[in-house]
Structure formats: C-alpha cells, structure tokens
Write a protein that binds this DNA or RNA. Structure first.
Lengths: 278, 278
DNA sequence: CTCCCCTGGTTCATTATGTGAACCATTGTC
DNA sequence: GACAATGGTTCACATAATGAACCAGGGGAG
C-alpha cells in the first residue's frame, strides 16, 4: 500500500530531510502523534520512523508525553524561533514572502508597524512591470483613519484602542473633521467580518488599497500589510482579487514576523475548499 | 587536528543529530554564519557541513542570505514554534522545566498567569522531600500587592500598569489600606534593579517567597514564576540562594512558554562569569 | 596586472550509516 | 485467554553519508 508515492526518485532524499519532514506531520488539528500515527502518515518503515523520532527528541525538536507516549513539538523550537525573531531584522524576514506576494499580485505591497498610532514603514516590495506605478513615501506617517492599514489594525484590536485613536487628532488628516464614532464602528465591524480593510482615494487621489493586520505571537495585531494600486486599474473585481491574495498570504506574513494568526481569523481568511485540501 | 574531541564513541551520533547540532551554533552574538564558520565551529568536514546546511535550508530551518551567502535561522522555526505554543498546553510546556527547578531548589515552585489583575494558577511543582511543606490554594486569586509574584510583574511592566493596579481595590488584601504610591514605586524600582521580588509573611504567616516575571515573545511580562518556602527554613542566605536558582532558570521558563527575555534582563539574571562560560 | 589566500561549493571512491522485515513486550478489549 | 492493537528492538544488507582532493570566484597586497 505504501511506496506508491507519486514522486520520481530524482535525488535520494537525505535522511535529514526525511527526519525534518516528520515535523510537518504535526498540525493544529493533530498536535500529538504516536509512533504508528507518524509511521502511517509518512509511509516510511516503523523502525526508521522510530529512530528519527528519537533523534528529534534528543535534539529537543520533539518531546514525548510520559503517559501517552505520543510525540509533540519540542522546546528547542521555541528557543530557536525566539533567537530568530531577535536576531534577524524584520525586513529580512519579510523579504521573500512580501516579494512573492508583490509578484503574484502585480502591485505594490507595504508592511508597516504600529508605534503608538503611527504607521511606520517596515518593508515594501514592488516586483511588477506595470508602467503605471503608485508612488509612496516610506518616511511619512499617514493618519490611521485615512488608510486601509490603519482601519485594518483598529478592526482587529480590542475596543479601547478605538477610543484612544478617536481622541488623538493625529489619527486623522490635518483639517479633516473628527470621524463620527458610530460610522467608524460600523465600518470596522464590516472589516472584521469581511477580513480586510479597503480604501479608495481616501489618502491620495487615484490610489486605492486593501489591507490586513499582522499578528504577534500572542495573537494581537501589531502591524499591517497592504497592497496599493492605481484606482484606475480596476473596479470591485480587482479589489476582491487583491484582497484574496493578501488574505491567503496572511498567515505566512504573521509567521514571518514571528507571530501567528488567531484560529478564527485563519478561517475567515481561508475559503473552506482550500482548507479542505490540506 | 579534529577528531580529538573528548567524548568516547559510545553510540555513533546519528546524522540527524549532527545536522540539528549545527543549529545550536547560531547565537544572539553570531546570528549569521558562513560555511567555513560552521565548519570551524563544528569541527566536521566541509563537504559534510555543506550538505547538512543545504538540507536544513531546504527544510526551511535555515535560510541563506543572497548577497553574503551566510546562513541564518529560517522561517520554518517560527512556523513550528507558533504551532507548539498554540497546541501544547502551558502546563505541559512547563512541566519539565518547573519540575527541575523544584528539584534543585527543594521547594514549591509556582507559575501564574495574569488575567487582568488576577494571578491565576497555571502550574506548580513540588519535587522535594521536606517534611515541612507550604500548602497553597490553586484556585485562589491573591491580591497583587500582597505577593512576590504580583510585585515582580508590576516591577517589569510599563508605568501605566501600576496606576491602574493602585486604583483597583482587588489588588490589595481585603481591609488593608491602599498602598502608598511613593513607597510602592521605591520597592518596584529596587526589584527591577535586583532582578527578583520577595515577600516575607506578607500574604500568609510563615510563608515567604521570591518571584520573577515571565515574558512573552514581545518581551512583555505576562506571567510570573515564584518559589515559596517556610519562612523558618532560613534567612537572607536562603532567599538569595533560591532567587539565584530562579533567575538562572528565568530564560528557560519564558522560552518554555513561547516567549523570550529581553536582553538587558538576561544580563541582570546571569552573573558575568556564567555568561563568559558559554 | 599577477599572485596568493580565503571564501563557497562540488566530485567520487570508500565505508560507515541508515534501512526494514521480522521480532519482542505491553496494554487493553472482547 | 485469545486477539489485536500499540511502542519498541534486532541484525543482515545495501543505501546513503563521508571526506580528501578538487574547482571557481573574489578581494586585497604587492
């Protein structure tokens, strides 16, 4: 029954790859696996699997529950991941994932981090060949309420944050009237159920964008990722398309920055059929 | 020159262990290593090291900087660590590390998490043989200002938290007068420079304790770990000894819960001579 | 510019190392 | 008490890891 895996034996997979591959069998749905579970899922021989599991356990990548004998992810992972987050600059962590997103979206992608109520630029990527491009200022601090990013952040933060943001004049465009609390609340609620925030010509004429929050390890929004595009490039369909790409990459982006997306938002971002195919 | 490593060849280290061992060469001080760096540090052959590095990279445990060709810890670590934090209950994550601490301290060890200003019990360990033991109530919610844990948390949290805590009557013993702001501030400052909080007979007569905060991935205090002992068991020397054990394990404890200790506090907790020997 | 040394990376014969069918030991269920 | 799970171990076999020697590029120093 096993051994009929579709892949051709091009270059004989290293034992290291095989062992590390076992870690990918653990999931949110199945966080603890017994020896035979792993054996079944991997399709490899039981003895081999066992030796690999022991090796991974000795390195701290797995740990074994004393009573059930089941294996689960080990403490070395948190240790090393912590080190990575501390030592690798955010820009580096984001480069590939944001680059890919920009390439597949064909538009400008931004990541900003929140400092107080300022959206400070972290990284951007513009890997496309459109002759018409959106210009931007990496050093500007756009007001929260005038951007998709700002609204994405507020929509996925606890209620108190909105109160503080409304009280701060720097969160709106200079000269603009204070946003109506009731209207904003309705819009944020929409965003929270839709999964992403949008903005059409709100900050600069001719520039639209969609945005989602980025979550830290505790599941709190602390940054945002947005795709900006010339409003002329398309209507509702374009927006929906870009938003979908963005949400598909949402989990990857939070993970790249050392965080993780709360489960209920993962479900919001992942269409049911895609989730089924994993 | 190599091969003179002191360890006897009891059981020939698996290639998996060898490869995973390479990850331990990365540190806060040296977060990026070139091929020859790794080769030197590991003492293994260059070709071997290279194959291992490639295997680790392909699995996402390392990534290679495109320009410098140096390797650094990869994104798979944050992905798996996030999964571990989500799926493994806190109690499980803490069991071994807290158990060890209790064994070496010979006293009761507690971990509590902050929910609002309540210290809710997460896990405890009591791995010792003293005939005299400290009893405790896992379901009680002791007032912040009456415990070492509470003060440890406040001392390592931003200033605004103290204001809120002072305003809340639940943070003090029923019937007790409100703490004097100026005195509390002085004590917290002491704790912050000393590295740990202490309590002698403050909550219950005959029970003393020392405590440190536990930090999340963003370096914010969100829980505490304390050692409780009968006041009669010793004086200042005992307290200092237990506090030292606690601080030595501090980083491990935060890491076990998926967080990491801010660098300046690691230095506070680790005596200079110990840091040199790594 | 050439030489030299130091990188990162690759080759290929040798053999140590990982492999897996068959085996044992426990546990729990009918 | 038979049976079917589970986790774990053994040992002959051959696959996959090893490392000395090799290549290629890049940056100083002279």
């Amino acid at each position: 029954m096993q051994g009929v895996s579709g892949c051709v034996k091009l270059q004989p997979m290293s034992t290291i790859a095989k062992a590390l591959g076992l870690l990918d069998l653990f999931s949110d749905a199945q966080p603890a696996l017994g020896l035979t579970d792993v054996q079944r899922l991997s399709g490899r021989d039981k003895a081999t699997v066992h030796r690999h599991l022991v090796a991974l356990e000795q390195a701290g990548f797995l740990e074994q529950d004393a009573s059930t004998r089941a294996y689960r992810l080990g403490p070395a992972l948190t240790r090393l991941a912590g080190m990575r987050v501390r030592t690798v600059p955010e820009v580096e962590m984001l480069r590939t994932v944001i680059g890919n997103l920009s390439r597949e979206a064909g538009e400008l992608v931004h990541v900003s981090r929140l400092q107080g109520f300022d959206l400070v630029h972290v990284h951007h990527a513009e890997e496309h060949e459109h002759p018409v491009r959106v210009s931007f200022d990496a050093y500007g601090l756009p007001p929260l309420f005038a951007t998709a990013s700002g609204k994405a952040y507020l929509a996925f933060s606890p209620g108190g944050v909105l109160d503080l943001a409304l009280a701060d004049p720097r969160t709106r465009l200079p000269g603009a009237p204070a946003p109506q609390r009731i209207e904003i609340e309705a819009e944020l609620k929409q965003i929270a159920t839709r999964g992403y925030a949008r903005n059409r010509d709100g900050l600069r004429l001719g520039v639209s964008s969609v945005a989602i929050p980025v979550f830290d390890a505790a599941g709190r929004a602390f940054a945002t990722c947005s795709i900006a595009y010339p409003t002329g490039r398309g209507g509702k369909a374009t927006e929906a398309h870009l938003a979908r790409l963005l949400m598909q990459r949402g989990e990857e982006i939070s993970q790249a920055m050392g965080g993780s997306v709360p489960q209920h938002i993962v479900q919001l971002w992942t269409p049911a059929q895609e989730r089924a195919a994993s």
